[in-house]
Simulated assay, not measured.
Amino acid sequence: MKKNSLLFIFIGLFLIACHNDYTPKPKAYLRLDYPAPKYQTIKYDLPFSFDKNIIADPLILKQLNSDNLSYGINLNYPDLKGTVFLTYKAIENDQKNLNDFLRDAQKFTFEHTKMADEIPAYPYENRKQRVYGMLSVVKGNVASPAQFYVTDSTEHFLTGSLYFQTRPNYDSILPAASYIQKDMRHLMETLKWK
Rank of each mutant, 00 (worst) to 15 (best):
residue 73 I to R: 04
residue 100 D to H: 13
residue 88 Y to D: 11
residue 150 V to W: 04
residue 138 V to H: 00
residue 83 T to S: 06
residue 115 M to P: 01
residue 176 A to W: 10
residue 173 I to S: 11
residue 16 I to N: 03
residue 102 L to T: 00
residue 2 K to C: 07
residue 161 S to L: 08
residue 142 V to P: 00
residue 145 P to S: 02
residue 160 G to A: 04
residue 90 A to N: 05
residue 161 S to N: 07
residue 27 K to G: 04
residue 37 P to Q: 11
residue 157 F to S: 10
residue 94 D to C: 09
residue 23 T to D: 15
residue 147 Q to K: 15
residue 117 D to H: 07
residue 5 S to E: 13
residue 191 L to T: 01
residue 5 S to D: 10
residue 60 I to N: 12
residue 185 R to K: 15
residue 143 A to R: 09
residue 141 N to V: 00
residue 10 F to H: 05
residue 190 T to N: 09
residue 93 N to E: 15
residue 136 S to P: 01
residue 10 F to D: 04
residue 28 A to P: 09
residue 86 L to F: 02
residue 22 Y to F: 14
residue 85 F to W: 11
residue 70 S to K: 07
residue 45 D to Q: 14
residue 14 F to A: 10
residue 139 K to I: 14
residue 184 M to H: 00
residue 161 S to A: 09
residue 97 N to R: 12
residue 9 I to W: 09
residue 53 N to H: 02
residue 48 F to W: 04
residue 127 R to W: 07
residue 191 L to R: 02
residue 66 S to I: 05
residue 115 M to Q: 13
residue 144 S to K: 09
residue 125 E to Q: 14
residue 162 L to M: 06
residue 133 G to P: 05
residue 41 T to R: 14
residue 47 P to T: 04
residue 181 Q to N: 09
residue 148 F to T: 00
residue 165 Q to G: 15
residue 147 Q to H: 15
residue 149 Y to W: 06
residue 176 A to Q: 11
residue 116 A to R: 05
residue 157 F to G: 12
residue 28 A to M: 15
residue 80 L to P: 01
residue 65 N to M: 04
residue 176 A to K: 13
residue 38 K to R: 13
residue 116 A to C: 04
residue 121 A to E: 10
residue 93 N to L: 12
residue 72 G to N: 13
residue 72 G to F: 11
residue 14 F to K: 01
residue 55 I to R: 09
residue 5 S to L: 15
residue 69 L to A: 13
residue 189 E to F: 08
residue 35 P to C: 08
residue 154 T to R: 12
residue 93 N to H: 12
residue 156 H to I: 03
residue 180 I to Q: 00
residue 34 Y to D: 13
residue 147 Q to Y: 15
residue 42 I to V: 13
residue 130 R to P: 03
residue 45 D to V: 11
residue 159 T to W: 02
residue 179 Y to M: 08
residue 59 L to T: 02
residue 135 L to K: 08
residue 28 A to H: 15
residue 126 N to P: 01
residue 146 A to H: 08
residue 14 F to T: 03
residue 8 F to P: 05
residue 148 F to K: 01
residue 168 P to E: 03
residue 139 K to N: 11
residue 117 D to Q: 10
residue 158 L to R: 06
residue 112 H to G: 01
residue 105 A to P: 03
